[in-house]
Write a protein that binds this DNA or RNA. Sequence first.
DNA 1: TAATATAGCATAGCGATGCTATATTAATTC
DNA 2: GAATTAATATAGCATCGCTATGCTATATTA
Lengths: 201, 201
Amino acid sequence: MARTKDPAIRLRLIERAAQMLRAREPITLRSVVADTGLSTMAVYTYFGSMDGLWRAMRQEGFTRLAARLAAVAPSADPVRDLAALGAAYVSNALAHPDLYRVMFDSGFDLEDPAAADEGLLHFVRAVERAREAGRFPGGTDAPALATRTWIVGHGLASLTAAGPLPREALSAGPALLTAVFVDAGDDPVQCGRSVAEGWTL
Amino acid sequence: MARTKDPAIRLRLIERAAQMLRAREPITLRSVVADTGLSTMAVYTYFGSMDGLWRAMRQEGFTRLAARLAAVAPSADPVRDLAALGAAYVSNALAHPDLYRVMFDSGFDLEDPAAADEGLLHFVRAVERAREAGRFPGGTDAPALATRTWIVGHGLASLTAAGPLPREALSAGPALLTAVFVDAGDDPVQCGRSVAEGWTL
DNA sequence: TAATATAGCATAGCGATGCTATATTAATTC
DNA sequence: GAATTAATATAGCATCGCTATGCTATATTA
């Protein structure tokens, strides 16, 4: 047929763009391909448009987040794990604040929305394990409770990593998670211990 | 001296830009002044740069939000008022999702940051009234508790108005607020009533 | 009241942007 | 090894934000 696309080039462009984003350098059609030996057409071959490149970067952000959440090792205490997941979520946003901001820009259009759902799934599974362990006797279903945890994590991450709140505001994390989990039926004292144990930034 | 700036022109440009933002039309230097009888220089006279116009729009967003929160009439039940403030916050984001997104873009640089603080102050005062009413016997100080409420509100608003969550996710609002307020020491039953009463979208 | 100073305004143009049309190159298939 | 075809390189287009320049209108002053 003809010469084929090289996936490595695609990854190199995404990585380079992410690096420029971190360095707060302007990401333009010509600047991303500069010094790479590639021409501007590479962007259109691999991403269709400049918007496509941004979309791919968002995707990459969610993929990395999912990997970060997957690296949280489940323990015998599922509520501790939930707090650890929340901490990992916020920690990821703090480590890559600009990428985190881009992830939720432009109406959340991704190439593969399932990658974002996969991240939430880690929370859902932890909630289910907590329920099986009898920690959440309340009637709230697992996806709803996982979503509440996500809402808290996103609010905290968004306002501290890419917003007006100072880093000290991160101390609100354990308190908020404890409040949500106790509301779901967990014992206040035990919950406080579990959250404190899991929340490590 | 010379001819003077007309504040009305400034407002007209901001309003027009906000309208184009809502209509999802591209906001460019030339498009904002098109059909207004003004030249492109007007933007630089009144805002210094295109970035200045965006900054002014963010400011306008926070001003409208503050006005919206100020319109929440305090009642005899300060916890109800807190929920009402939260609902007003989310409701404002839902009514102007694009403006809300812009408000938290670009590193949160505003002309007058005090306008944003003023919005938070409504929450702080409501928390103080609740404390005086004996609803929050816990030791958490008012600003911290108000910030927690804001974090929850922003997480909910950000993910539903300008994010991936569907409108049904708004039902998490009362549950989250109740969890936070009960954690602060309020009676669960009374708190549930107050929040349900105040949370009107 | 008339001259002057000055701030706002309109115009034109610059460099840079995202994108596309066209020609060239290189890899695959027969 | 020729034909086919997709990826690449080049050049150019419309438009972007921005600024230099000259003009106009108003406020101050004599």
